[in-house]
Write a protein that binds this DNA or RNA. Structure first.
Lengths: 108, 108
DNA sequence: CGATTCCGTCAGTCGGCGCTAACGTTAGCG
DNA sequence: CGCTAACGTTAGCGCCGACTGACGGAATCG
């Protein structure tokens, strides 16, 4: 309730995005180097359309950011989003502690 | 080569397992407290069969471990697996650096 | 202006996944 | 040994998601 934006949905979107092997490869491609959509598509043996859809999913999850330059669109990975994901992984245990504590108080 | 199973597949299996909201909730339930399958199923409003399948997916991904006690099967989260996942997330950047370096040598 | 480049978007198909219902299995009790 | 409890497993169904092919749009060059 503290966060106005649905944080759990955002985390879920990131996990769903990373569940696809090709999207992980794309994310790795734009991790350090900003790349255009065409360059990314050229790295894989799938249609350019599929890559574009993968980029859309990654962008909507917040894992990558888009920047336009002429007719090209350049993509780069957002490391902050990954850190948010790692925090969520740690939260699995810390939040679980809170819930366990609530259960103890209830059953006593 | 330190791991007998292909690491990228294991990481992918973990991401795929975490992509499902219900599996994340289950993982959180058994994060600190070891629980039986029936107890877990009672927490959600889905059939016990569905929970059992989720537990299978989580177990095969390595995110949880199973222990038998009589007719019951107790599950607990494996925090080491989560740490392996976080390392993979960091690896997106470190491995990308290696690949970028190789590309530079190629194009020169 | 027309042509080209670089992309995203829209149907449509197909395989995979989550769910339910019925059945099979193992452990413990009388 | 029959019975029950506590599970996993299988078959089937509905649906989402990854992919392809065709189309549309914005920026650049001549």
């Amino acid at each position: 309730m503290t966060s106005p934006a649905p944080l759990d949905d955002r985390v879920g979107a990131m996990f769903r995005a990373l569940a696809e092997p090709r999207r992980r490869a794309i994310l790795q491609l734009v991790a350090t180097t900003e790349r255009a959509a065409g360059e990314i598509a050229a790295e894989f043996e799938v249609s350019r359309t599929a890559v574009s859809q993968h980029l859309t999913v990654l962008k909507e999850s917040g894992l990558i950011a888009e920047r336009r330059e002429g007719t090209r669109r350049l993509y780069r990975a957002r490391r902050e989003a990954v850190r948010e994901l790692q925090a969520a992984l740690d939260g699995i245990w810390s939040d679980a502690l809170d819930r366990a504590r609530a259960l103890v108080e209830e059953e006593q």
